[in-house]
Design a protein around this nucleic acid. Structure first.
Lengths: 336, 336
DNA sequence: CTGTTAGCGCGTTCAA
DNA sequence: TTGAACGCGCTAACAG
């Protein structure tokens, strides 16, 4: 039943040639008679010959496979990033091997180990919320496996990265709220230590301070798992009687809006809300949620392009590409 | 700079043993002195030895890698399915290689070709909206590469599959609408020929007929790209003055609700709406959209589990697992 | 218990 | 222009 793959050896036998001649013909190397090449190519096509990439990899020491680790696939941003990577991979003849860390540093380290032992040519990673330890990345460096961060990175690790300017996005968003009349803006923040969350917080704080709005540590509440923590976070934040809530992402923005509505507040009349990401739910909630749209697809594309370039040029320099999110203003933050 | 990986040969040299002895020690085979095994294992750990899976694959003829092809990753259902597969893959020591067809039969065929030439051990696929041709799958069969469908399948291709009972889900949904008082239900359908869309349509039609509700070909409008076609489809359907719209999925259900509201209808008062899938937007839209939640994560898990079983048992029988969606009733379809 | 030999499918010398 | 021989890292068969 098992249909053995035809090998270069089979071709050689049928043509009474040596394997090395066949190999040369197949790879379009010079130093070969046009006539023999034609014959080889013809038979190869006829017999449906396909090179064994495994065998080639064993020699080349390259697999044309890139590993990708994301915290959670089922996310608007990361699924779009993967989609972008998929396209670039196709364009350049690479394959993608993926792994999900489930926001766990442990699973992430295990994923890195697994993928690295597969002899991938490079690794693209967006770290989990927990990740602090640089050790797994140092091991990659020792092994000589090129890797890069995309979106969520570890600041203190020397590596290339493609990120989105979270600081600027947050700053723009908060400044917009101020322009719309907010005088007291609070921030439902993400987990401490996560690069993107820290940057958004920094952007929020700078915008608030630049415009002389009130600020205190109480203006910020951190959420680990926002689906769980958000409701309580909002209650805490509302004690400050804010007229604006800047949320770490869109799902939490949606929760905020829903909570405000059920507790008798008017959005945007009493309180304006802005989220972050560009999730589909932001467009659907009522009032529609203003947000900073992250270019997930583009992040994926650019990250893989950069990594492939580094791999193929054997470049050791680190590079950093910073993209920008786009503030999309909807009803939830408009003056009325 | 390049840190050469330590090989079994290096271990052998340092221990003055033969490579085969080392190999046996490493693999915990019998016929080996406990003392030597200990030494080998110790040195291997000390030198950070890692087996070269490429070389092993060349011999075993197995890569412990599964290919996955999905129409669109950035989708609630498929991203959750991938997530489920990722978990099972980890549990069983497999890797996942993925590829997106972008709903194009051509890209899908190319993806199959690409993955197959990578010497994957098996393939999991959910077909594109366009796919009709069975040829790519026959080639897989010839090559002896086990493959399976999940969710969207090609009915006339003999292969195992893990699917969700779309017929039953649609039937339940429409029957629920009838119970809530609908007398004239129309259907915003998916593309013709797509297995899941056809089944949902069948379920809709049977439920309507069972209860003696009016039905005509005009009660159904097909959408290819629902984001584009939905608005027009709704206009057409509304000419029949329905009091219920059963939508092919949640995004189109959301569009329906929004359209109805802006044209002066009350949902669910005048018209009840039910979607399909369980996308997050369904919970957020107002009124919240009733839907049939598809167990995407479980489909992914079960599909990969089944495929791995088939691979490891070299089973040739085809198997079919049918899961069920769950009707979740929200405001958009409640009697009032 | 251990080592020798052969080979997986292919690429890379080097002679011929 | 072609072919023989060797090696990639590892496993498998057999002999010792």
């Amino acid at each position: 039943m098992k249909n053995k793959q035809v090998t270069i050896k089979d071709l050689a036998r049928k043509l009474r040639l040596s394997v090395s001649t066949v190999s040369r013909a197949l790879r379009n190397l010079p130093d070969i008679n046009e006539e023999t090449r034609r014959k080889v190519l013809e038979l190869a096509a006829g017999l449906n010959y396909e090179p064994n990439y495994i065998a080639q990899s064993l020699i080349n020491k390259q697999t044309r496979t890139i590993g990708v680790i994301v915290p959670i696939i089922a996310t608007h941003f990361f699924s779009h990033a993967l989609s972008g990577m998929n396209e670039v991979a196709n364009e350049h003849g690479y394959h993608l091997m993926f792994c999900q860390s489930n926001e766990s540093a442990e699973q992430e380290a295990e994923g890195i180990r697994q993928l690295a032992s597969c002899r991938i040519d490079g690794l693209l990673i967006s770290v989990s919320k927990q990740t602090q330890d640089a050790a797994p990345f140092e091991k990659l460096q020792q092994k000589g496996i090129p890797f890069m961060f995309f979106d969520r990175d570890l600041r203190h690790v020397t590596a290339s990265r493609v990120i989105v300017d979270q600081y600027k996005g947050a700053f723009k968003a908060v400044e917009h709220m101020i322009q719309q009349g907010c005088q007291n803006i609070v921030h439902m923040a993400g987990p401490k230590g996560l690069s993107v969350a820290d940057e958004r917080l920094r952007g929020y704080k700078d915008a608030v301070e630049k415009h002389g709005l009130p600020f205190s540590p109480k203006h910020i509440v951190h959420c680990g798992k926002f689906q769980l923590d958000a409701p309580e976070a909002i209650k805490k934040l509302m004690k400050l009687q804010p007229d604006g809530i800047f949320c770490i992402n869109d799902p939490s923005g949606v929760i905020a809006i829903q909570h405000l509505k059920t507790t008798g507040y008017c959005v945007p009349g009493d309180v304006k809300v802005v989220g972050f990401n560009g999730d589909p739910v932001a467009e659907v909630v009522e009032p529609a949620l203003s947000t900073v749209v992250q270019p997930g697809y583009k992040v994926g594309r650019e990250a893989l392009k950069m990594l492939i370039r580094h791999i193929e040029e054997k470049s050791l320099e680190t590079e950093e590409l910073v993209l920008e999110g786009k503030l999309v203003i909807r009803k939830s933050s408009k003056m009325c």
